[in-house]
Amino acid sequence: MIQRIQSIWLLLAAACGFTTLIASFYIGSSGTLPVEHFTAKDNLLLLVFTVIAATLSVVTIFLYKNRPLQIKLGFAALALSIINITLFFVGIKKYTSGGIALESVAAFIVPVFIILAIRAIWKDERLVKSTDRLR
């Protein structure tokens, strides 16, 4: 299971997803308030979607015997990670000044890792189907 490349991609997606819980996405201030670090823990909906997407990536690793389900769960995790990025940008509208933090790369790279994993799972499924034709 870990020897497959999609397992590595999904593990990296989960690690980056959980990293967004503690790493700053945006550093800014509202008016006269001091500088704040905006993370996924600052918004309840963002927190829930982040945890579900990262957990879904981990769970998908262990479903290696059921590749069609793996692909469906991969697309679900991809949709959740894109929703996460959207929620991050909606959440930074409350700040009047500031900038996107360097650690925000973790949020942007999660969908990339999930897409790479889905692609590898799809290749495995095609390989299995092609060997079934030969029997």
Rank of each mutant, 00 (worst) to 15 (best):
T32H: 09
V35I: 15
V110E: 11
L45P: 06
V48T: 07
S57L: 01
L47Y: 12
G91H: 07
E103T: 15
T55L: 15
G28K: 05
L45G: 14
D42T: 07
V112G: 09
D42K: 14
V35L: 13
L45I: 09
T50D: 00
S97T: 15
A53L: 08
F113S: 08
I83E: 03
L69T: 14
N66C: 05
I71T: 07
I100N: 06
K41S: 12
A77L: 06
L69P: 08
A77G: 01
P111I: 09
N43F: 07
F108P: 03
L63E: 08
L33M: 11
F62C: 11
A106Q: 04
N84S: 07
D42I: 01
P34W: 02
L87H: 03
A107Y: 10
F88M: 10
A106D: 01
I82N: 09
I61S: 05
P111Q: 08
V51G: 09
V51H: 09
V112K: 04
F62V: 12
S81H: 05
F89V: 10
F88H: 02
Q70S: 14
P68C: 13
I114K: 04
V59C: 02
I52S: 09
I61E: 01
R67P: 07
T55W: 03
L63T: 07
N43G: 00
I92Y: 05
T60Q: 02
I83R: 01
T50P: 00
F49K: 00
I85A: 09
F89A: 08
G91P: 06
N43C: 01
A107T: 05
N66P: 00
L102S: 13
T60Y: 04
A107C: 10
K94S: 14
S30H: 11
K65N: 14
A76C: 12
L102D: 10
G74A: 12
A77K: 04
F49E: 01
K94M: 10
N84H: 01
L46I: 00
L69A: 14
I82C: 13
I92H: 01
L102P: 03
V105P: 04
T39Q: 12
L45D: 08
L63H: 11
H37V: 05
Y64Q: 03
V51A: 13
T39A: 03
F108T: 01
L33Y: 12
I114R: 01
V90Q: 13
G74T: 03
L87T: 03
V51D: 06
L78R: 00
N43R: 08
L69G: 11
E103W: 11
D42H: 10
T55E: 08
I85G: 10
A107Q: 12
L47Q: 12
F113H: 11
I27L: 14
Q70K: 08
L73V: 11
V58M: 12
G31R: 05
T86R: 02
G98M: 03
V110H: 11
K72L: 13
I85D: 13
H37A: 14
A54M: 02
G31N: 06
Y95E: 00
F89P: 00
F62E: 09
I85R: 10
L46A: 00
D42P: 06
L69M: 14
A101E: 09
V105S: 12
G28T: 07
F88W: 09
L87M: 13
L47E: 09
G98T: 01
A77H: 04
I61Q: 07
K94H: 12
